[in-house]
């Protein structure tokens, strides 16, 4: 069996609440595995322990009990972070550095140097679409731009695992689609992605597997198709169907043991509408 990219074993995290007797259990006995090459989505309402779990995996917070490992190396080892890129939620970077300086700084921390570092920085600025803002200080960046620089920073050392905490929070729909494409591209290149998100439509689109957390407990886990399939229903979508065709279909259904639950016109999603509208103004 191949080694999992991320392994979480009976992980529990308890935060003491200062000046109170009670404690807050953020994660309870979590067991989780992400196979190499997979895109794994961690879902859950606010405060359900997603970010806490990710931080423990990155060794930023220590577990109360249980353990986590990245490619078989315990998260407490500094070396386990060699192969990982991390984008925290609402990332902030040093305001006094420019975009390019920021990437150079993080690149050096990953052991990149010289022309390799320089090329990689240019490549990533291009990838996240920040070439024009490269020499501006981050103090003047918008939220979405910070998110992009954060993403670039996470990809610097060509990691085998990328951990993204709400990668599309605060990013406009076009940017959010870019990030989705980027994740799919990572997946094509065999890079494992572990992400948390509230945007279910997007998660559904890109993730192979999801886990749903509630109050620190893993309440559902599995492949997206398996979790979503309604096995005894079928959807038909017709274009230019005349009323006669519809009537015939209805008659056919009537004669069969099946039931027609609903006939409706499919609606475009708000996302698609938004993208079309903003794209058009761009081109004018």
């Amino acid at each position: 069996m191949t080694e999992p990219a991320v392994a979480v074993r009976s992980l529990t995290k308890v935060f003491p609440i200062p000046f109170r007797r009670t404690k807050l259990v953020a994660v309870r006995g979590l067991d989780l595995e992400v196979a190499p090459g997979q895109v794994y989505g961690l879902l859950g309402p606010n405060g359900s322990g997603k970010s806490t779990t990710l931080k423990i995996i990155l060794g930023l917070v220590s577990p109360t009990s249980g353990s986590t490992a990245i490619f078989g190396r315990d998260s407490r080892e500094v070396g386990s972070r060699e192969a990982v890129g991390f984008l925290p939620e609402n990332p902030y970077f040093y305001k006094y550095l420019t975009g390019a300086e920021t990437l150079r700084f993080y690149g050096k921390l990953c052991g990149l140097r010289g022309s390799a570092l320089k090329n990689r920085v240019e490549e990533l600025l291009h990838l996240v679409g920040l070439q024009d803002a490269r020499d501006r200080r981050l103090g003047g960046y918008s939220k979405g731009m910070l998110q992009r620089i954060g993403l670039a920073q996470a990809l610097l050392q060509e990691p085998r695992l990328v951990v993204l905490d709400e990668p599309t929070a605060g990013v406009d729909p076009a940017g959010s689609r870019d990030i989705r494409d980027l994740i799919l591209d990572l997946k094509r290149r065999g890079i494992t992605v572990l992400l948390s998100s509230h945007l279910l439509a997007q998660v559904q689109e890109i993730c192979d597997r999801v886990g749903i957390l509630a109050h620190g407990l893993l309440v559902r886990e599995g492949r997206v198709e398996d979790l979503l399939a309604i096995e005894d229903q079928t959807e038909l979508i017709l274009q230019n169907a005349t009323p006669e065709v519809l009537a015939q279909i209805a008659a056919l259904v009537e004669k069969s043991p099946a039931q027609l639950l609903e006939t409706r016109q499919p609606q475009t999603t708000l996302e698609r509408l938004f993208l079309e509208a903003t794209n058009n103004t761009e081109k004018k």
């Binding site: 060794g59 930023l60 500094v78 972070r81 990982v84 991390f86 990332p91 902030y92 993080y106 920073q153």
Partner: peptide, 12 residues
């Protein structure tokens, strides 16, 4: 400002 997360998430 949580910049420390991005730094310590690197092999530092």
């Amino acid at each position: 400002e949580r910049t420390i997360y991005t730094i310590l998430a690197k092999p530092v």
